[in-house]
Amino acid sequence: SLEGTEKASWLGEQPQFWSKTQVLDWISYQVEKNKYDASAIDFSRCDMDGATLCNCALEELRLVFGPLGDQLHAQLRDLTSS
C-alpha cells in the first residue's frame, strides 16, 4: 500500500514501459519499503529502463541489488502479470 506517499511515478504503468527515472523511483521505493541498506546497491548499474529491467534474470538482479534482488524479481513478476 502507498498510504502517506505521493503517487509514485511508476504506478499504473507496466514495468516494461518504465523510463530510467521510473525504474530508479521504483527501486528506491522498494529499498524504503523493505528497510534495505541502500549502500549495498550498485546504483551505477541501475541505469536501465523498464524493458531492460524486465529482461534481467534473477541472477543479474542479485548481482546488482544483492539480497534485495529476489524481492525485486518477485515484485516485477507480480506487476507484469497483473
Score class of each variant (00 low, 15 high):
Q16N: 05
K20T: 05
L72Y: 02
Q14V: 06
F65H: 00
E32L: 08
E6Y: 11
F17H: 05
T21E: 11
N55H: 03
E60R: 07
F65C: 07
Y29G: 08
D25M: 02
Q30K: 03
L68M: 08
A74F: 14
K7P: 09
G66V: 00
T21P: 13
D47R: 13
V23E: 01
T52Q: 06
Q16A: 06
S44Y: 07
C46D: 02
C56T: 11
I27A: 03
Y29T: 08
W26T: 00
K33N: 15
V31H: 02
R77T: 10
L58S: 11
P15F: 02
S9L: 07
L58D: 05
G4H: 07
Q16L: 07
I27Y: 02
T80E: 14
E59L: 06
T5C: 03
S82Y: 15
G69D: 00
L63S: 08
S28P: 00
A38G: 10
M48S: 01
E6M: 13
E59H: 15
Q14P: 08
T21C: 04
E13L: 06
I27T: 01
S82L: 09
F65D: 01
H73F: 06
C56V: 13
G12D: 12
D37V: 06
Q14K: 09
L11V: 06
Q30P: 01
G69N: 01
L72I: 07
E6N: 11
S39F: 02
N55S: 09
Q30W: 03
E6P: 09
C54E: 03
A8R: 14
Y36R: 08
R77D: 03
C56Y: 08
K20L: 04
Y29C: 04
E13W: 06
T21N: 14
L53A: 01
E32A: 13
Q75K: 03
D47Y: 13
S44W: 06
L79K: 05
P15A: 03
D78Q: 13
R77A: 13
A38I: 15
W10G: 08
L76G: 00
L68R: 02
S19H: 04
Q22S: 05
A40D: 12
T80C: 14
W18N: 01
S9A: 07
L58F: 12
A57K: 07
D49W: 01
Q16H: 15
N34I: 05
L24W: 03
E59W: 05
G12W: 15
L24V: 14
G66I: 00
Q14I: 07
L11D: 08
P67A: 13
D42K: 04
K7I: 04
K35Q: 12
D70Y: 07
Q71S: 14
D49N: 05
A57R: 09
A57F: 02
L2P: 04
W26L: 01
R45Q: 14
Y36Q: 10
G4N: 02
C46R: 04
A51H: 14
L72G: 00
S81R: 11
L68A: 11
D47S: 13
K33S: 09
H73G: 06
Q30G: 02
D37N: 12
D37H: 05
G69I: 02
R45A: 10
D25A: 09
I27H: 01
L2K: 01
V23M: 03
G66L: 00
D70S: 08
S82P: 13
A8L: 05
L76P: 00
L11S: 10
D37Q: 08
P67L: 07
Y29S: 07
A51G: 12
W10I: 14
L63A: 10
L11M: 13
G4M: 07
A40I: 08
W10Y: 04
D47F: 09
L53I: 09
L58I: 07
K35I: 03
N34P: 01
Q14Y: 10
G50P: 00
N34M: 14
N34T: 08
D47K: 09
R45D: 15
F17D: 01
M48R: 01
L2A: 11
C54Q: 05
L79N: 06
C54P: 01
K33D: 07
E6I: 10
K7R: 12
K35C: 11
Q16Y: 03
Q22M: 10
S82N: 15
K35P: 10
D25R: 12
G4R: 12
R45E: 10
D42T: 10
D78F: 10
N34W: 13
L68I: 11
K7S: 15
A57L: 10
S1L: 05
C46E: 07
D70V: 07
S39E: 14
D37L: 05
A40K: 10
D25Y: 02
D78G: 14
S82D: 01
S28R: 13
A57C: 08
G4E: 12
E6L: 11
N34H: 14
E60F: 07
M48F: 15
G4V: 06
S44D: 09
E60C: 05
T21G: 10
D37C: 13
P67D: 13
T21F: 14
E60K: 07
S39P: 07
H73A: 07
K33R: 08
L68N: 04
L61I: 03
W10D: 01
E60M: 08
D42C: 02
A51N: 10
G4W: 04
D42Q: 11
V31G: 05
T5L: 14
Q14W: 08
K35Y: 12
C54W: 10
E32H: 12
R45K: 11
S9I: 05
S19C: 14
R77C: 06
D25W: 02
S82K: 05
I27Q: 00
T52L: 06
A8Q: 08
F17A: 12
K20A: 13
W18D: 00
T52W: 10
D70H: 05
L2F: 10
K7W: 09
A38E: 12
L24G: 11
L79T: 02
Q71W: 07
D37M: 13
C56W: 08
L2T: 06
E13R: 10
L58H: 07
S1G: 04
R45L: 11
Y29F: 04
D70T: 12
Q16F: 05
V64Y: 07
A51W: 06
Q30V: 11
G66W: 02
Q22V: 06
A74W: 12
S81W: 10
D78C: 03
D42G: 03
F43G: 06
G69V: 02
D37S: 11
L2G: 09
K33Y: 09
K20D: 04
L72A: 01
L24F: 15
D49E: 10
R77F: 04
L72S: 00
S82Q: 14
E59P: 09
T80V: 12
A40G: 14
A40W: 11
E13A: 07
A8G: 12
L58T: 06
G66R: 01
Q71L: 12
E3L: 04
A74I: 01
V23P: 00
G12A: 09
G66C: 01
L63T: 15
G12Q: 04
D70N: 11
N55R: 10
L72H: 01
S9V: 04
V31Y: 03
R45M: 12
N55C: 11
A51V: 11
F43Q: 03
T80K: 07
L53G: 01
L68H: 01
T80I: 03
D49I: 03
V64I: 07
L53H: 01
S82C: 14
D25N: 06
Q14F: 11
A8H: 08
S82F: 14
S9C: 12
A51D: 10
D42S: 06
D25Q: 11
A40P: 09
L11Y: 05
R62K: 04
D78V: 11
E3N: 15
L24P: 00
S81P: 02
Y36G: 10
D42I: 04
T52F: 03
R62A: 06
P15V: 06
M48C: 01
H73E: 06
Y36D: 07
C54G: 04
Q22P: 00
G50L: 00
L53Q: 00
D37P: 07
L2V: 04
D78Y: 09
A40Q: 13
S81A: 09
L72F: 05
H73P: 02
Q14M: 06
G12I: 09
Q16G: 12
W10P: 03
S82H: 15
P67C: 08
D49S: 08
H73Y: 07
L61M: 08
Q16R: 10
E32G: 06
T5E: 12
D70L: 07
